[in-house]
Design a protein around this nucleic acid. Structure first.
Lengths: 340, 340
DNA sequence: AGCGGATTTGAAAGCGCTTTGAATAGCGTC
DNA sequence: GACGCTATTCAAAGCGCTTTCAAATCCGCT
């Protein structure tokens, strides 16, 4: 059923029907009711592409998915997408995915922008120096950065307070008597990892504790790397009595390494992991339950969707800066430092 | 830059330019070269929506993402998407994501179909009785099912041989002397879980071993559930000496439970897990390395993309049935059954 | 009765591309 | 020199919607 047929059927012009359907005020209420009713009865659904062409808006936002940058292929994306959808779906805005091999990434943005396939894009997992901000700004394609990067160009971003989170977590461990604390971090080219390390160091410095560089390591946030780094930490003498871990996935590996070393989590070694809140990785049901710095990545996705919508509708990018606090949830994986 | 301007610039008609760009044969080679050249120099990119409207094809395929059906939010989707992109991107076909709350799922398909937002969709994680096949067929929206379901309606599908995989794995354990084998399965409403259980049972039956129903369990494929089920299995007397596990994520939990019970993986308890090949969960680097039934979900995504393209271009759905064999990779988590 | 203003409705012109049907040019034949 | 082909090119008509601009209708008042 096309708009034309529907109009004919109702004995109205396309104009009026279109207006009635799109909620314009200059339509008689009685008429609008008839139109909406007929539309529903006939299962009328406007042709998305015709509308897009006519309005000049794509009614879609894009996500570029780097299929080779390992780190990005993890579950974070999925949760984020789910959150994004919560906002956008209500407005019939599509999410367009563009899986891309690393080097083509910029070309993909270009294609999206110029071909007006999307009205805006989401940028995830920014590097400390991330060129995408500049490129997208030049392309004139609106975007919201999920995370932060160093760029002279004003742009919209929303991030969690990674530094504060790890500062608090470290402080908490110090308060429990820990002095040798290890950091099992994500790759340091990402801003979030750098910020977490900064929080970690500043908490130690505030208490006058020197950082033992043997206990600072980073890598892909996988079970495997978590295992390897922790294994190495624990082989040192004296070993760290507490660990800060950048992801739940890594914490699983860290936990295995702790057990493999014959140690007990929460007694011999304490651990606080960052939790992005995945439905399949629940710190509350782990044994022992895991202390975490928590911030829902799905909630972030939802908010990014909202902001992106406002941005596309004209809100100035430089007015969009949100820094979300991160909650420290103490559970059973942290305890007082053992006696030396 | 619009087509019109480009044409004007070249002193040609839109018709000719369009044809040159789209590779139609009735264009002078010299002309085509000039056109392509100018297009590149000016960074011409056709307006996707105008083209879609004119051709009547959406140039996009859809994925409906149920944001509440827990199981589906896991990393599987991401890998699958990456694979899908490998095929589709080359043809400038977009992937449209529609995150949806469970009950609206059918409405979402309807919207996609009637509004011609997509030319076809991917159906993932089918239930044993999955109504989507019928609905989509009635809507006339082409689709490829990744997995299988019981439906009288002929349709395109591609699946891995879950039954064969678990039959072989079970057989392998029996050959190693195991007699009490546990099955830690995914939710049984999904076809793949049912098929795996069928393979498990048939292997045992073939050797005249009775299935101990206490050692058959299923649930969401998470670390947590893997832990719980395994914990329960190991509390029985006598306990199982081997486990078949439906996902690597579950196997992490199972492994924790084994250690928690003071047992050693690969000696006291053997384990074979199904591996969908995630970049962040590598059985080769686990300690001990994990025996698996392996089938890359990314490869499947890639193939689904190809098939979907063929389908949209007119290939008959009932000619598309692929059943992929699954490889059994024996590593260190499996060993001979311990003496009772 | 006539007028200004508000309320509703419509005709038609795009949006930027593809595609049909027709026109033009070039060339070998008879 | 006219004819029949083939090779190229083009004008114009859509694709299905939104939106501008104009027209029609209705009311309350003077």
């Amino acid at each position: 059923m096309r708009l034309k047929e529907l109009a004919l059927h109702l004995g109205l012009s396309q104009t009026t029907v279109s207006r009635a359907l799109n909620g314009y005020p200059e339509v008689n209420e009685e008429t609008r009711r008839r139109v909406l009713d007929a539309a529903r009865r006939h299962g009328y659904q406007p042709n998305a592409n015709a509308r897009r062409l006519a309005t000049g808006r794509a009614g879609a936002i894009g996500i570029v998915l780097p299929t080779d940058r390992n780190m990005l292929l993890d579950p974070h994306y999925m949760e984020f997408q789910a959150g994004l959808g919560e906002t956008l779906l209500a407005d019939e805005i599509d999410i367009v995915l563009s899986p891309t091999r690393g080097s083509d990434e910029m070309a993909t943005y270009q294609r999206m922008a110029v071909g007006s396939r999307v009205d805006g894009v989401v940028l995830s997992s920014p590097l400390i120096a991330d060129d995408r901000v500049r490129v997208l700004t030049e392309l004139g394609l609106p975007f919201v950065l999920h995370g932060r990067t160093e760029s002279p160009v004003p742009h919209a971003w929303i991030d969690i307070d990674n530094e504060g989170a790890f500062r608090h977590a470290t402080k908490h461990l110090i308060d429990l008597g820990h002095r040798r604390i290890g950091l099992v971090n994500g790759e340091t080219r990402f801003t979030f990892a750098r910020d977490r390390e900064a929080g970690f160091r500043s908490a130690l410095a505030a208490r006058g504790i020197a950082v033992d560089e043997r206990f600072v390591a980073s890598g892909v946030m996988s079970d495997e790397i978590g295992y390897r780094i922790t294994e190495r930490f624990l082989a040192e003498t004296p070993r760290p009595t507490a660990l800060l871990v950048s992801s739940m996935m890594m914490s699983l590996g860290a936990f295995r390494a702790i057990r493999a070393a014959g140690l007990e989590l929460g007694r011999d070694v304490s651990m606080i992991a960052h939790d992005d809140v995945f439905p399949f990785l629940n710190p509350d049901v782990m044994v022992p339950t895991m202390s975490t710095t928590r911030s829902s990545i799905r909630a972030a996705g939802k908010r990014v969707g909202e902001l992106l919508k406002e941005l596309v509708e004209g809100r100035a990018a430089e007015t969009i800066h949100e820094l979300w606090p991160v909650e420290l949830v103490v559970r059973a994986s942290t305890g007082p430092a053992p006696d030396d």
